[in-house]
């Protein structure tokens, strides 16, 4: 666990896809109406989404370091959108857990006075992710109800050392845990064990319990993973009453288990949770499934990681 004294959330910008704009999300800055977003390929559309977020945030902020993350091989989306921007950049991959991983890294840099302001950018595009991890886009392979749906969105967050209403209190970087599963459709089942591992460590190291938080928000466990996570925590004598899952919250559609991707947690947190006066102290658990189609085809079980971050809303 790492404690931070002087790190605050300064600004953010969110772009959501066509399905997400009709979902349960309340506030977002911009929406795209089609998956091509005026570009020739889905990859270029995702780059354009990140570019739009960056353009909007860099107008008002001047970060000294940008950490980028996305789901595609070699982090191509972030690499491309940061091209020629002349700002130091670091690519970070923890799959869907990248958001909190990057925020902890930026917070440490700010807290140790190496930088004054840092920016985190992430994105996911349902169709680029499907193409890389599963089947061709138009194939439309039938999906089981336990599967999750990659959320199309791009989110940028600016952290600063100047005081604002949103304070980053502490964070725990997770360990890679074996899920014992080989089923790439059951992402909730894969990630729940990692979520429990980091959550228990975070409680122990910060000497807190679930009741110390107004909300515990996990990333993209979905309905199935949510119940597995609760059961795992219950076995360690932690009853989670104030717990929600961002992936379950996001969609109204009941055909799949929920939303997934690195953008889900920051998106739901920034659009629905942060301005809700009910929540003063929030624990974010970004869950990530570190699977690669190659290793799964070679009959390996899927590793998983979860990073945790506590944020306080001061008002």
């Amino acid at each position: 666990m790492y404690k931070f004294k002087n790190v605050y959330l300064k600004d953010w910008y969110t772009i959501v896809g066509p399905l997400e704009s009709k979902s349960n999300l309340k506030n977002y800055n911009q929406t795209i109406n089609d998956y091509y977003y005026g570009e020739k390929t889905f990859e270029k559309a995702e780059i354009k989404m990140q570019n739009n977020v960056l353009d909007n945030l860099l107008e008002k902020n001047s970060p000294e370091l940008i950490i980028g993350s996305d789901l595609l091989n070699q982090l191509i989306i972030s690499n491309m959108s940061l091209k020629n921007r002349n700002i130091p950049y670091l690519g970070l991959y923890s799959a869907c857990a990248s958001s909190v991983g990057a925020l902890i890294t930026l917070s440490s840099m700010i807290d140790s006075h190496k930088i004054k302001e840092g920016l985190f950018i992430t994105s996911a595009h349902n169709l680029t992710a499907e193409k890389q991890y599963r089947f061709p886009v138009e194939y439309g392979s039938p999906k089981p109800i336990r599967s999750t749906f990659t959320t199309t969105a791009s989110v940028g967050i600016v952290l600063t050392n100047k005081k604002t209403s949103y304070k980053i209190v502490n964070g725990t970087i997770g360990c890679v845990v074996d899920s014992y599963l080989k089923d790439t459709s059951n992402m909730g089942g894969v990630m729940a064990i990692g979520a429990a591992h980091t959550c228990l460590r975070h409680f122990k190291e910060t000497n807190t319990s679930p009741n110390d938080y107004d909300l515990i928000l996990s990333g993209d466990l979905g309905k199935a993973g949510e119940n597995i996570f609760k059961e795992l925590m219950k076995r360690e004598n932690f009853i989670l009453k104030n717990y929600k899952d961002a992936g379950t919250l996001i969609y109204q559609n009941k055909d799949y288990s929920g939303g997934s991707g690195p953008a889900v947690l920051p998106l739901v947190f920034l659009s629905n949770i942060i301005n809700n006066k009910k929540y003063k102290r929030i624990l974010l658990l970004a869950t990530g499934s570190l699977h690669s189609p190659t290793l799964v085809n070679q009959k390996n079980t899927i590793p998983t990681i979860t990073h945790a971050l506590t944020i306080e809303v001061i008002k």
Partner: peptide, 30 residues
């Protein structure tokens, strides 16, 4: 066709239609 597949599941994947669809969808993607 992909919307129909998600709705009517693997019945649409009987050899001729499924084969044509798999080739067509891959070529569209790449």
């Amino acid at each position: 066709f992909d919307n129909l597949v998600s709705k009517y599941k693997s019945g649409l994947f009987i050899p001729t239609t499924g084969f044509a669809h798999s080739i067509m969808s891959s070529s569209l993607d790449y």
